[in-house]
Every structure is written in C-alpha cells, then in structure tokens.
Simulated assay, not measured.
Amino acid sequence: MDVPADGDRPTDLPYPDVDELEAAAARVLPEHVVGYFRGPTGAYGIPTEAERWSQLRFRPHVLRDTSRLSLATTVLGTPVASPVLVAPMAQQRAAHPEGEVATARAVRRRGVLLGVSTNTGVRFADIGAVGAPWWFQVYVMDDRAMTADLVQRAAAEGATALVLTVDTPGVDPRRPQLEPRSWPERYGMQANLPGGDTGRPIFSGTRNLSVDDIGWLHDLTGLPVVVKGVLRADDAVRCVDTGAAGVIVSTHGGRCLTQSIVSADALPEVAAAVGDRAEVYVDSGLRTPEHVAAALCLGARAVFLGRPVMWALATGGDAGVEELLGSIDTQLERVLRSLGAGSLDELGPDLVV
C-alpha cells in the first residue's frame, strides 16, 4: 500500500475538502478496503446522513461580541481543546500501517480525544503510550468472559471511559465481501486478545444486551459508560436512569439499519430528554464545520468525526489527521462567530431550523 510518509504533505493546502480526501484515499487503498470503509450510507430515496446535516439552516445573531470565543470544553471531565473528537473506527491499520497509534499522535497534538474500536489492530499499550486521552468502544460479545477481559485490559492501559455500542444485534449478511475476516489480509484485528490474533471473528452481533450491561461494564472497571447508538428519547432516558454517564446519538454511520431516522433528526429529542443529567454526543455523517456547528446548537456537547478522519489517515498519516482536525477547528470558529456566539454555552436550538 502506497501511504505518504508523515510530514510529506504540503503545509499550504486550503481547508481540506472531505470529498477530495475520500477520492484521494480511494486512489491509494485497495478496492475492498475502500468498500469496507464506505459501507452502507443510507437507504434508497432518503437523504444520507451528510445530506440531512446540510439541509439544516442557521438563524444567526448579529452585533454580538465574539472576541473571546474558545472551542475548549470538557467531556466527562476531561479537558479538550475542541468539541470535535475522533470516533472509534475498526481497521485503521488498513488505512495506515500504524493505525490508531498514528491517529492518537494527531489527537494528542490537537488536544482532543480518541475513540478506540473493539476491533482495533493495535495494542492498547501502544495507544496509551502516545499520551492522548482515549475511550474504548465495547461490543458485548456472546463470550462475556472475552468481553470482560478486553475492557479490563483497556482500562489498565489508560482508557478513561467505555463506549457501549448497542445498535448491532446482527451483522448484515448481504455484504459478506466487506467483512474483514474474508479479506486477503487481516491487519491484526485482534491485537488485544489473549494469545494475539487467533483468526476467529471477534464480533458477530449480540442479541442479549440490556440496560443491565451498563452497570456490569461500570462494575468491571469503575469507568463511566457512554451508550452509543441511541436514536430515541425514551431509550436515552432509560440509559441515564440505569447509570450511563452519556449517550451518543448515532446510526453507526449508516452501516446497520439503513432506513432508520438520521442522527440530525434524532439529536434534538434525545438532548431535550436527557437535559443536564448526562452528556449527549453525536456522530454519523458529520463532514463540515457547519455540520459540527449545527450539532452543537441542537444539543450535542461534542461530536465524533469518523470517515473523514479515516480518509485523512490514509492519505497523510498523523500529519493528515492533524491537518484535517486543525482546519475544521479554524473554520468552526469562523462559523460560530458568524452565528454571533461568543462561547459554546451561547449555542442553542434557536440558531437552527
């Protein structure tokens, strides 16, 4: 795989266009890898996640002092320089040989936070050694002992929260060619299992999840649990009532149930139902600073960026990811000032229709 060396990218590029990044990644990655990363993105005849975010319109204030605007915030008490975080994504070593280690270096330099997938091909110890704050995304597998071992290993190596993913009770059988276990190369998906990569699937869907698993994961590690894949207000309230420290409004990037409500439409009701009892985040389809601004206005404390980071990783390594995140932050400040927001606290649903 021809991946540019870190630091080889020119420094005078304009704000990265995600479509151009995706096209560039498709030129350097194997076709089956690009197909896996793209995955399903929406049902026929309805807007994709990104299109729906772009349909939202702002109602900006004017004549507001924005001179002291800062993007700095906290997520579960961890200070971050921006509300734009990096989503957990499997198979990052298919995009870049160092996988999450390279992504973590960019995250550390940007002062934000990294989500790490259950299906990472990088050892937790190597990610932790970089020094970026990170949360571990958890699939509760039918093998509960394996799940417990993985989350305890993640906690021991520095994960500061667990992200319980709840929207994958089954894997779509219509796209078996996209499953990494059928690829000609595997990129070490099971680097953190006892004995290393065993060749068996680490996850194939869990049908017996319940809200009790929130407390089970917390008791295993003492870490706060964030529930990922929530699209309804009543489910969000049940999660918080059972001890969740936060919820992530997510459609898994449109990869699971393609005719579900999109994140942009689910976020307002979830945020209103949760209120200040827990933190609300969102992912799926966010590609521009305007998308991020809209999400913050609709109640998200922070957003998780997914595929754009993967394209940047594939085309530029950690330097590419750092450039992408830095450019989004720069443009996000411009957008927020254009909305008349002098701080993140001044963002609200009245600014979006």
Rank of each mutant, 00 (worst) to 15 (best):
D197Y: 13
D345R: 13
V262W: 07
L76K: 01
K228I: 06
P60V: 11
W134G: 10
V107C: 04
T48Q: 15
H252E: 08
G199N: 10
T118K: 03
D345T: 12
L71S: 01
P194F: 05
D241K: 08
A266G: 08
L325N: 09
L313F: 07
M146I: 00
R38C: 00
I328C: 03
D283R: 12
Q152I: 01
V3P: 08
P349C: 04
T41D: 15
R175I: 14
P180C: 08
R110L: 00
T73A: 06
A312W: 09
G35C: 00
A161Q: 04
D6H: 01
V225G: 00
P88T: 04
V280H: 04
Y15Q: 10
A94V: 08
D2M: 11
L267A: 01
H61Q: 13
L286K: 05
R57H: 12
Q152K: 13
V107Q: 07
A272G: 07
A132D: 01
R337I: 10
L71N: 07
S250I: 06
A94H: 15
A244W: 08
M141K: 14
F58V: 14
I127G: 05
F304N: 02
G348P: 00
A271Q: 00
H61Y: 13
E157N: 12
Q92D: 02
L220Q: 13
T74P: 03
R9Y: 00
I127N: 09
E179H: 14
R108Y: 01
A23H: 12
Q177N: 11
V237D: 04
A156Q: 10
D143Q: 06
R105K: 15
L220V: 10
T168P: 01
V112H: 01
Y44T: 15
E22N: 11
G35D: 15
R238D: 14
L324V: 03
I248T: 11
E20F: 06
S82T: 14
D345W: 01
R277I: 04
L298E: 06
H96M: 07
R153T: 14
A266R: 05
M146T: 14
T251P: 01
G99H: 09
V352Y: 04
A245W: 05
G35L: 06
P176C: 11
R175C: 05
G99L: 08
A95L: 12
P133S: 10
D350G: 15
I214G: 08
A90R: 02
T147L: 08
A106D: 07
T206D: 13
S67C: 03
Y15V: 12
L231T: 12
V353I: 11
A300H: 07
T206G: 13
L56M: 13
G121K: 07
T165H: 08
I214W: 10
V270M: 05
F136N: 02
P180T: 03
P268V: 01
S67K: 03
P184V: 02
G246M: 07
D19G: 14
R200K: 14
L113Q: 11
T330L: 13
R64M: 10
A271S: 15
L325C: 11
V321W: 08
S250H: 09
V237G: 04
